[in-house]
Design a protein around this nucleic acid. Structure first.
Lengths: 202, 202
DNA sequence: CGCTTTCGAGACTGCTCGGTCAAATATCGC
DNA sequence: GCGATATTTGACCGAGCAGTCTCGAAAGCG
């Protein structure tokens, strides 16, 4: 029949994701991509169509959890809902490890494109609302378990925590992720929700 | 002696600031700049040196308050410290008006460049620490006035609010600034600090 | 093995990029 | 008005951009 592909498109997409994540859309050239993916120009265009399509595919891959557990995963992974929220905030500020950049590709995409690109805007706003919904669920769970401080409205607090999470990712991108200041800031937010002081269990 | 400039460098810098703010560094070409500023290429280079130098000058102009009152101004402009903090958060999410884009040039710069450009990183981290210091002062003032909820550590809360403020600016950039959701999220943060429910006085 | 079909490498397209230059032009003290 | 100086203009530079094309190579089938 025909010749088979010599590279793994999934692996290439993964590499492209990290490259766009690190350097942004405008800051990444097609030569950067072919160099880093180790494939030829025509292979890139034949497989992904265009730089823009590749960017969207990379963003989709990021949002579906290719760079680690999704927020919803994290928020469901602990018995204590407040503990899971703390986990979420703390994973947002992890420093870069290996070839995984600091910060968040989705936040970078939001800031770079604002609402100018509908395809991207649809993905980033969807990402925000999914995060808020997951946080809302976790807060309801916390309230049911009696963890949540009285007077905290779960809906409003979910939006607030989503915004805080975005802000933490901006600071992580700036390289401030591992500072003690940031850790105490997260602790401050958690104590406002009603969490007792946290003994680090890493 | 010599011929006088036919354009106002201050006004041109102001326009350049809004352009970089809206489109980012990589997304703004020198032709975009000359078109928008209404000056010739050589005038731009003769006056500002390079695209990079112009960007830094625009960022400095933004940080020194050319786009509105600085955070320190806002935090000092109300009798009630908590009211001034609420004002700060609410000005972070104002939608674009006129030629002023939504969001925050400094946050955009932080996300676009991370810590890769030292000149830019110095400015953005300095901006964050100034914001935190100003918030810390406001929280101390709130505590002295008895406004602050007991159990809130001013230092940690200042960092948390700075991060939240960054996150709000990301959401504003995405066009979500004027939603009721965001307003209630700010109210949620304020109530956690100890503020009574807020009757809007706009 | 030979045929067909897809793939990959790299040259190539037209275009835009950031930045420079020479010449024309305007302003000033005299 | 004249000469000196600074600015404007618009052409120009090499480089890099996103994307296309050609052509040789390789894989599956008979």
């Amino acid at each position: 029949m025909a010749r088979t592909k010599e590279f793994d498109p999934e692996a290439a997409l993964d590499t492209a994701m990290r490259l766009f994540w690190r350097k942004g859309y405008e800051g990444t050239s097609t030569s950067d991509l072919t160099d880093e993916l180790g494939i030829a120009r025509a292979s890139l265009y034949g497989t992904f169509g265009s730089k823009h399509a590749l960017y969207l595919a990379a963003l989709d891959r990021f949002l579906s959890g290719a760079a680690g557990p999704t927020p919803a995963d994290i928020l469901a992974s602990r018995e204590s809902a407040l503990d899971s929220i703390r986990d979420l905030l703390e994973t947002s500020v992890v420093p870069p490890r290996g070839d995984t950049p600091a910060g968040c590709f989705a936040v970078n995409a939001t800031v770079e494109h604002g609402d100018t690109d509908p395809e991207i805007a649809r993905r980033t706003t969807g990402n925000v609302s999914r995060l808020e919904t997951a946080l809302y669920g976790a807060l309801l769970r916390a309230r049911a378990e009696g963890e949540l401080a009285p007077g905290v409205d779960p809906k409003a607090a979910a939006t607030m925590l989503a915004a805080l999470n975005h802000g933490l990712k901006v600071l992580a991108r700036a390289g401030e992720g591992q500072s003690d200041r940031i850790r105490t800031a997260i602790a401050s937010a958690m104590s406002m929700l009603g969490a007792p002081p946290h003994a680090d269990t890493d």
